[in-house]
């Protein structure tokens, strides 16, 4: 029988540290290091490719950039216009009124979907 709580608490035992625990922790860290190393490797490869890309396609000077932007804009207008003409051919230029398309759309009823 124990006289007081502290005497009893002092009887509490802790088992010995499992054999090889330190080695397992160190090995696990080494494995984690490989993962971390691999991530760093991938990152550095990414940097190399970015640098290579920059070497092949150097960043244009502002004048070049402005010219390129104008060309892209003009190209966009031309393509847009061509597409627009194509749309007119399909609808209004075939003799049908645009309203006829709308009336077709207006005749749509929910029952058709049910």
């Amino acid at each position: 029988m124990n006289n007081d709580l502290d005497t009893l608490l002092n009887k509490r035992k802790v088992p010995d540290m499992p054999e090889g625990m330190n080695a397992r922790i160190i090995a696990e860290a080494a494995r984690t290091e490989q993962t971390r190393g691999s991530a760093q490797h991938k990152l550095s490869l990414g940097c190399v490719f970015t640098r290579l890309f920059d070497d092949i396609f150097p960043t244009p000077q502002p004048a070049w950039a402005a010219a390129a932007a104008v060309i892209v804009l003009a190209l966009g207008f031309v393509i847009g216009d061509m597409v627009d003409i194509g749309l007119v051919d399909l609808s209004a230029t075939n003799g049908d009124e645009l309203s006829s398309f709308m009336s077709v759309e207006d005749s749509f009823s929910v029952q058709e979907w049910v």
């Binding site: 330190n22 922790i25 080494a30």
Partner: peptide, 19 residues
């Protein structure tokens, strides 16, 4: 990333922290 330092820290305190 000094693995030796990590091993040393493990050896030094693992018993204490295991308890």
């Amino acid at each position: 990333s000094d693995h030796g330092a990590f091993a040393q820290l493990v050896e030094r305190h693992s018993k204490l922290f295991f308890s």
